[in-house]
Amino acid sequence: MSLFNDTFTSLQGALDYSAAKNKALSNNIANVDTPGYKAEGVAFKDILAKEASFQTKTTHAGHINFSGEAGQSYTTYKKHDSSYHPNGNNVDIDKEMNELAQNQIQYQALVERMNGKFQSLQSVLKGGG
């Protein structure tokens, strides 16, 4: 018997994703002036592949293959061949700040949802009073 249901597991996975995305965005912002730096991003597909505990079957060439190796990194590089700055850096600070703000809002909402679940559990343990 499990003390926590699948909702806690899903919320934990979403929080892990949001934390990994926050780290990548923070690195991008910190390296906005670093020559040759390529912006990092977190791909949901990679996280799903790492966390997925089910078998998938692709029946069409356009389907996403979720078979991934355990231990693969959450962080992937994006836009290798692009360069927004003369020094080879491809960090768009406005885009990164926008994504960071959106990610922080999502993270806060997930934390509040998790807190609500714990408060419900605490209420049950106290006998509903």
Rank of each mutant, 00 (worst) to 15 (best):
A43K: 09
A43G: 06
A43T: 06
A43M: 09
A43R: 08
F44T: 02
F44R: 03
K45C: 02
I47D: 05
I47K: 00
I47H: 06
I47T: 03
L48R: 00
A49M: 08
A49V: 04
A52H: 06
F54Q: 15
Q55P: 03
K57M: 15
T58P: 01
T58M: 08
T58R: 07
T59G: 05
T59S: 05
H60L: 13
H60N: 13
A61G: 01
G62T: 13
H63L: 08
H63Y: 13
I64Q: 05
N65E: 02
N65T: 04
F66G: 03
E69C: 01
A70R: 12
G71K: 09
Q72Y: 13
Q72R: 04
S73N: 12
S73A: 14
Y74D: 06
T75H: 04
T75R: 12
T76H: 13
K79T: 10
H80F: 14
H80Y: 14
D81F: 14
D81Y: 14
S82I: 10
S83M: 11
S83V: 10
S83N: 08
S83K: 09
Y84A: 01
Y84I: 02
P86M: 01
P86G: 00
P86I: 00
P86H: 05
N87F: 01
G88P: 00
G88R: 01
G88Y: 00
N89G: 02
N90Y: 12
D92N: 09
D92M: 03
D94L: 04
D94N: 08
D94P: 00
K95V: 15
K95S: 14
K95G: 10
K95Y: 15
E96A: 04
E96F: 08
M97S: 07
N98M: 11
A101L: 07
A101C: 01
Q102M: 08
I105E: 00
I105K: 09
Q106H: 06
Q106K: 08
Q106F: 03
